[in-house]
Design a protein around this nucleic acid. Structure first.
Length: 501
RNA sequence: CGGGGUGUAGCGUAGCCCGGUUAUCGCGCCACGUUUGGGACGUGGAGGCCGCAGGUUCGAAUCCUGCCACCCCGACCA
């Protein structure tokens, strides 16, 4: 097996990561045709190619949720204000970023021909909050569904959109409206609810690592980073190429907070009235942002095969109809065989672009494998196969194409994950002094593993001085006595700090 | 929401300070022809209420006011 030397190609019009990472990201999202800004402030249009990635994520996650016993349902977009405010901490946490519906009708504006205005007579008795998350409406509903221990556990997920009126938005990473799934479960015991919250964190981690090829740290949030209304927040934290951390998914143990706020009780086997225990967990279209920032390069998007809408693209190289026909005949066989193996293949026989333009386009869009086939290949019984992750090219016998490609897709998936793990390992630094801490956060980036005294004061002070926050207290942390990197007070374990998205 | 910046054709831009012919250039787009192993070439063509709304002026892309959107830096956050 001989790799051909890859000619250096300047990717046109895409800012280099090292010049301006943020600009690179924004340009890539638009140029790769994933999404664009809309006429609505902070809200994006997810374009077909970007949505196809979301659909692949959804399909896999949905399968995993169902395998772990969950069912899908759907709850309303609007939450009456009185319900929204029932769980105080939750309400307070989200209050500042809620869109609120106050009227239900428009009318012609008498002072402004051809324009509409809100009909002042159509004011709602009670304002409706556009859900920033659905605990309130769901727990109000669960009240009617749960009477006995026999009704438990209740394991529900919904795929939905939510709205959080963010000050600063970025495509996929933080938009005012985003798509997500939110699981909401009710359990008879604390132990069972905790187990559920951790199980879903595990599901998220497996999805991130096995499908997105994005390594994550499983951990618990510090008190100040916890979800509003949760007793414990479990998180998966990923590290992006610019050294910043991304909270990629969270799973909350809600204790009995919502059960108490909405008076959800069940009768136990012993005939006693008990409040139920709750969890909620979610991942969003933010995952697409994480996917982009984990693997992509200066040539464009790099997609892991398991989530790529197109896994293999075939580009014919030909002169005249006759050659195209001969090539198409061969290609049809490959397409059929690859599809029978579950590989998604696109044969790009457009006559309106030359091969070079197509190569560049599919590199920008991150298609994992490209096959080129021309007259020369027909004569030699070969094809040229290029992999997106390393940009290497190789000539392969036509007899081996299917086997080679399926193997290559696995290789790419694995290689992307290994590369990301290597990056994270290299950018995880153990520090014992605050000078070192500041230096690493400032200059090297990535995760910093340091002792922390467990107080909010220290956490806040560190954030203020370095902009780094506690990303999580890793679950597999070893107990190791030490001194807090900031206060010098006694600490029993290290936690992970980083600047984050 | 505070500070800074930017909005001119689908995209990227010149012109704006100092108001005055038909708003510049490149890419892209359309037609025809020649091309096709890494972003083709020629010829011809289309496309603009200069972000939106007011104002000043004989005259506004240019000056003034308000609004909207986007980008960067803070605060907030999945």
């Amino acid at each position: 097996m001989q790799y051909l030397c890859q000619t250096f190609i300047m990717s046109k019009n895409l800012t280099k990561r090292e010049i301006d990472y943020s600009k690179w990201y924004n340009e890539l999202v638009v140029k790769a045709d994933l999404a664009e800004n809309s006429a609505v402030r902070g809200c994006m249009v997810i374009k077909p190619y970007g949505y196809a990635i979301w659909e692949k994520m959804q399909a896999e996650l949905d399968r995993m949720f169902k395998e772990t016993g969950h069912e899908n349902a759907y709850f309303p977009l609007f939450v009456p204000k009185s319900l929204f405010e029932a769980e105080e901490k939750n309400a307070e946490g989200f209050a500042k970023e809620c869109a609120v519906v106050t009227h239900y009708r428009l009318q012609n504006d008498p002072d402004n021909e051809g324009k509409l205005r809100v009909d002042p007579a159509a004011k709602l008795e009670e304002e409706l909050v556009v859900r920033p998350t659905s605990e309130a409406i769901i727990w109000n509903t669960y009240k009617g569904w749960i009477q006995s221990y026999r009704d438990l556990p209740l394991l529900i997920n919904q795929w939905a959109n939510v709205v959080r009126w963010e000050m600063r938005t970025r495509l996929f990473l933080r938009t005012a409206e985003f798509l997500w799934q939110e699981g909401h479960t009710a359990h008879a015991t604390k132990k069972e609810a905790l187990k559920e919250a951790m199980l879903m964190q595990k599901v998220y981690a497996e999805f991130a690592e096995n499908f997105m090829a994005m390594p994550v740290i499983k951990g618990a949030k510090s008190e100040s980073e916890r979800f509003a209304g949760a007793d414990e927040t479990f998180t998966i934290e990923a590290l992006m190429q610019d050294g910043k951390a991304l909270q990629a998914g969270t799973s909350h143990f809600l204790g009995q907070n919502f059960a108490k706020a909405f008076d959800v009780k069940y009768t136990s086997k012993e005939g006693k009235q008990e409040y139920v225990w709750a969890t909620s967990w979610g991942v969003s279209t933010r995952l697409i942002g994480g996917l982009i920032m984990t693997h992509s390069d200066d040539f464009g998007l790099v997609l892991p095969p398991k989530l790529a809408p197109i896994q293999v693209v075939i580009v014919p190289i030909y002169k005249g109809e006759e050659q195209l026909e001969a090539i198409s005949e061969k290609v049809d066989v490959f397409v059929k065989e690859l599809r029978s193996k579950g590989v998604s293949v696109k044969f790009d026989d457009r006559d309106t672009y030359r091969p070079g333009a197509k190569f560049a386009e599919y590199e920008l869009k991150g298609v994992p494998v490209r096959i080129a086939i021309g007259k020369r290949d027909l004569e030699n019984n070969t094809v040229e196969i290029a992999r997106r992750d390393t940009l290497e090219k190789q000539t392969v016998s036509q007899d081996d194409v299917v086997e080679f490609v399926t193997g290559l897709l696995n290789d790419i998936q694995e290689n992307l994950f290994n590369k990301a793990i290597a990056y994270r390992t290299e950018h995880t630094t153990v520090v014992d002094t605050f000078d070192e801490f500041k230096d690493v956060i400032e200059n090297k980036g990535g995760f910093v593993s340091a002792h922390w005294d467990g107080t909010i004061e220290t956490e806040d002070k560190i954030k203020e001085l370095t902009k780094a926050t506690i990303r999580c207290i890793p679950l597999d942390n070893k107990i190791e006595e030490g001194k807090c990197v900031f206060s010098g007070a006694k600490s029993m374990q290290r936690v992970l700090f980083a600047k984050s998205y």
